[in-house]
């Protein structure tokens, strides 16, 4: 897809916020795609993990805003331990999720979980899921 790059975007508020929230240097990534290649959730994603990094550092937040990818990432850290540049993608995914959750845009609300599942799910699933998907 065509991408318009501008310094106003790459130095803009979105990039600043995700750098601050993730604590990561987005320029470490050289787009080798090891993260996408090893991601067990990649087939459930619309944007690949590699694309998320690229779009995020270009400040193209509207291209990421409605993507499924950041919500499909389960922070399994397969990418983190495999990255040849030492970039922790799980922290970038978290930063993007947090930007949305902090706008009170919950991805999952407790009341959305069917009653039967609430009784069956182990506590660690409920606690971790609601911590990752609600603000």
């Amino acid at each position: 897809m065509p991408v318009t790059i501008s310094s106003a975007r790459t130095a803009g508020g979105f990039v600043k916020k995700i750098k601050e929230l993730s604590g990561e240097n987005l320029h470490l990534c050289y787009q080798c795609g090891t993260c996408s290649g090893g991601c067990p959730a990649a087939s459930h994603m619309d944007l690949s993990p590699r694309q998320i990094i690229h779009l995020a550092r270009l400040g193209l937040d509207e291209d990421i805003a409605d993507c499924r990818t950041v919500w499909v990432c389960a922070s399994c850290l397969a990418c983190t331990v495999a990255c040849p540049r030492g970039f922790d993608l799980s922290r970038l995914m978290e930063a993007i999720r947090q930007l949305s959750l902090r706008q009170r845009a919950d991805h999952v609300r407790p009341e959305d979980i069917p009653m039967k599942e609430r009784g069956e799910l182990p506590q660690i699933a409920m606690v971790s899921g609601l911590r990752k998907f609600s603000g």
């Binding site: 067990p40 922070s75 979980i113």
Partner: peptide, 23 residues
Amino acid sequence: STRCCGSYQVVSDPGDIPGYARD
């Protein structure tokens, strides 16, 4: 043996879980 089982995705997208389990 170290591949993610889908983890807490079972809360948001339970329909994806059998695919993770199959793999």
